[in-house]
Computed example of a mutant assay.
Amino acid sequence: MEFIHTLGPMGTDSHNAALWWGKRNSISVVLHEEFMNIYRHIDKHRGEYLIIPAGYRNKENVGWVDLHFKFLEVNEVVDVFCISTQPMCLVENIDYNINGSIIHPATEVFLNSIPRLGKNNDVYYANSKVRAFDQFIIHKYRYCITSECNLTKINKVDQIKALKKFNPKMVWCVYKIGGM
Rank of each mutant, 00 (worst) to 15 (best):
V65E: 07
V65K: 09
V65G: 01
D66K: 04
L67M: 13
L67I: 13
H68K: 06
H68F: 12
K70A: 10
K70V: 03
F71Q: 02
L72Y: 07
L72G: 01
L72R: 09
L72T: 03
E73K: 14
E73Y: 13
E73V: 06
V74C: 13
N75I: 06
E76G: 08
V77I: 15
V77Y: 05
V77A: 09
V77K: 14
V78T: 11
D79G: 00
D79H: 05
D79P: 02
V80F: 07
V80G: 04
V80R: 10
F81M: 11
C82S: 09
S84F: 14
T85L: 13
T85M: 12
Q86M: 04
Q86A: 08
Q86P: 01
P87C: 10
L90C: 09
V91F: 08
V91L: 11
E92N: 02
E92M: 09
N93W: 00
I94G: 01
I94Q: 12
Y96K: 09
Y96H: 14
N97Y: 12
N97A: 12
N99Y: 13
N99F: 07
N99C: 14
G100F: 02
G100V: 07
I102V: 15
I102Q: 09
I103C: 11
I103M: 08
H104N: 15
H104T: 09
H104D: 14
P105E: 05
A106Q: 06
A106L: 03
T107H: 04
E108N: 13
E108W: 02
V109K: 15
V109F: 10
L111Q: 12
L111S: 15
N112L: 10
N112R: 14
S113L: 11
S113Q: 14
S113W: 12
I114A: 02
I114K: 11
I114D: 01
P115W: 09
P115R: 07
P115I: 07
R116V: 15
L117K: 08
G118L: 07
G118H: 01
G118F: 00
N120Y: 02
N121F: 07
N121G: 06
D122R: 03
D122P: 02
D122S: 05
D122C: 00
D122G: 00
V123K: 11
Y124C: 05
Y125G: 00
Y125P: 01
Y125S: 01
A126N: 08
S128K: 10
S128C: 05
S128D: 04
S128A: 03
K129D: 02
R131K: 13
R131C: 03
A132C: 10
F133T: 03
F133G: 00
Q135V: 07
Q135C: 00
F136R: 03
F136T: 05
H139L: 13
K140Q: 15
Y141T: 04
Y143D: 14
C144R: 07
I145W: 01
I145D: 04
I145K: 03
I145A: 05
T146C: 15
S147T: 13
S147K: 10
L151H: 04
L151Y: 02
L151V: 03
T152M: 13
K153C: 10
K153N: 14
I154D: 03
K156Y: 13
K156V: 10
V157E: 04
Q159P: 00
Q159K: 12
I160V: 15
I160D: 10
I160Q: 08
I160R: 10
K161D: 03
K161E: 06
A162F: 00
A162Y: 00
L163C: 08
L163T: 03
